[in-house]
Design a protein around this nucleic acid. Sequence first.
DNA 1: GCTTGCGCCTGAATGC
DNA 2: TGCATTCAGGCGCAAG
Length: 283
Amino acid sequence: MPELPEVEVVRLGLVDHVVGKRLTEVTVHDPRSVRRHLAGPFDLAARLAGRTIVDARRRGKYLWLPLDDGDALLCHLGMSGQMLISTAGAPPQKHLRVTLALADGTELRFVDQRIFGGLFISDEGAELPAEIAHIARDPLDPLFDAEELDTRIRRRETGVKRALLDQTLISGVGNIYADESLWRTPLHYARNTRHLRRVEVATLVAHVRDVMTEALAQGGTSFDALYVNVNGNSGYFDRSLQAYGQEGEPCGRCGTPIRRSPFMNRSSYWCPRCQPRPRNGRY
DNA sequence: GCTTGCGCCTGAATGC
DNA sequence: TGCATTCAGGCGCAAG
């Protein structure tokens, strides 16, 4: 599934393949993929036709394409979304949801098996769409403020992994990178944010940034010039994961079998020795 | 205001 | 073999 590094790879692909180009016709094949565009699929298509894409930007896992009229086309890939460049007339992909035809004869195609992602237009959203203004900066953003995060996270009364997944505190962190960063620090996912020490928060944030930077470096290598890549199989996951998905495997530090615990209707992977479960909520 | 949990989806994997 | 159930995940929003 696309996490921040994969989304950044997609953004770079969009810069290369669609920025500066004019949209000629937009076809919505499945209205569920534009459900966040409240005016409906026909309105979305009509407003995009004839517009020129002037940039490709990102905040956290959101992408947006500023248009020449000041509006922006927002995109979230969700769990399974892909942005593909095709030549017009190429056979449709199995889960093709929206086709955006470009004046040069190519097509930008939004393909999404599970429809957790989607497209919508933000009025006057070229600079920063209002719909995503609540999303915090991510750790790869030059203006990311680690001091501010430290203050806000330690004011919270919640588990540290919940905080990592809260996009209003820090964006771009999904379940996989949360587990990897907590393993590296190391911290148990249920540690109370209120009782974290400054150095623990600082170390955690440094590891989040490292994990993402490493994944970005490796994800970029699988990028194909004709394919705005986003299938999550960046190769990084196969080689480098220390915690996520490693249930029963020996911890890379101490050899203790990695454990899997239910967490927010999904899973958390952790080393019971390096990341001991807090007993009273403080530790 | 802050925190928590549900529902949206599909298809692979698992259970009976 | 075939049908039913479970699981995975990010995010918005309603409820607590």
